[in-house]
Design a protein around this nucleic acid. Structure first.
Lengths: 184, 184
DNA sequence: AGGCGCTACATCGACATCGATGTATTGTCG
DNA sequence: CGACAATACATCGATGTCGATGTAGCGCCT
């Protein structure tokens, strides 16, 4: 399974868990979720739908008329729902580290109805954000923004740090709430 | 030209503009720059080097011994330097909107020695960040964090907003400095 | 002496991506 | 009335990506 494919498939499964949709509508929702960053071509989406259908994760009913060409309304099968939860509970490492993929996981994490499984996923992201890392190194030592002269490279470090802090504080708040719900 | 390829090639050209390197060292630098987010496979890097070599953008000198296998030390050609500046001056839209690609552009933007060209690129990013956009919509209207019930989706919007504000304030500061340098 | 890991590159096949192009209908604008 | 955009899908070919695997030398540990 390729990486991008995995993310696209997760988005398809996630949106279909919300409600049955046809391909065109699915495409619009995916465009809203990740499209302002990187649009998805139709010729990528339709093959992905076919893959999932062949794998028995979704079923299509053909609806004539309505708009123009006959619509294929897509519904998640029981296996599809199971597979969605499986993927949400155990995302690949790239899904944790790449912000775009991470946001896709977050967008559907509520479908993982087990609060402790949700906690586990959030903790993986937290561990990643806490690992000391930079974009530039001196030997093995990660450089801090203050140590970099180039203003653009400093910008990268400055922005990354702000993002990381904002997300960490959100993660702490959310994990507190989740744990309170689990314990209480 | 494919999108990922374009970014990988930009990173190769950019690092080689800093200094001549062999493939293995190049790989480590790219891993530091973008690898904690998404690692680059060797079997992706070496073909990319070959493409650039065929295009006359870089040259290789074979150095025997040193470590183990003979090293191929890569140097940018004059056309390579020109091409790097061309790509930095006119990044594709995805390079502006996708944070990972944007950071790659930023990491080498100093090689674009024309301050007004640098300004232009930063302004494109600024325009993108200012466009009202969300990850979730009600019809055509982008939803704000407060309007979303799901805590995880709220998180996406909260984090994205914080990131966006941090970057906008950095952009404003940097653009001021750049413009002062150009006018003065 | 043998194994492991690192350096340093290369090839191959399976597969995903994307732009181009095609088909067909409905609605809108001038 | 013709052009054009939007809806809704589909196919094809060129190309890029990635994991697996191979080769080869060196240093280190036991």
């Amino acid at each position: 399974m390729r990486h991008n494919a995995a993310m696209l498939e997760l988005a398809i499964l996630g949106f279909l868990h919300d409600a049955p949709l046809h391909g065109y509508e699915l495409r619009k929702r995916i465009a809203a979720l990740t499209g302002h960053v990187k649009p998805v071509a139709e010729s990528t989406l339709y093959p992905a739908i076919k893959r999932l259908e062949r794998a028995g994760l979704l079923a299509r009913r053909t609806q004539p008329g309505a708009g123009a060409a006959p619509r294929h309304v897509l519904t998640l099968t029981a296996e599809g729902r199971t597979e969605l939860r499986r993927r949400l509970a155990h995302p690949a490492d790239v899904d944790i580290t790449d912000e775009n993929r991470w946001f896709t996981v977050l967008a559907f994490l509520r479908h993982l109805d087990d609060a402790s499984a949700q906690t586990e996923v959030l903790e993986r992201r937290m561990a990643f954000l806490r690992r000391p890392s930079s974009f530039f190194y001196e030997g093995d030592r990660p450089l801090r923004a203050e140590e970099v002269e180039d203003p653009f490279r400093r910008g990268i470090l400055t922005i990354a740090r702000a993002t990381s802090q904002a997300e960490l504080s959100w993660l702490r708040r959310t994990l507190d709430t989740l744990r309170a719900a689990t314990d209480g």
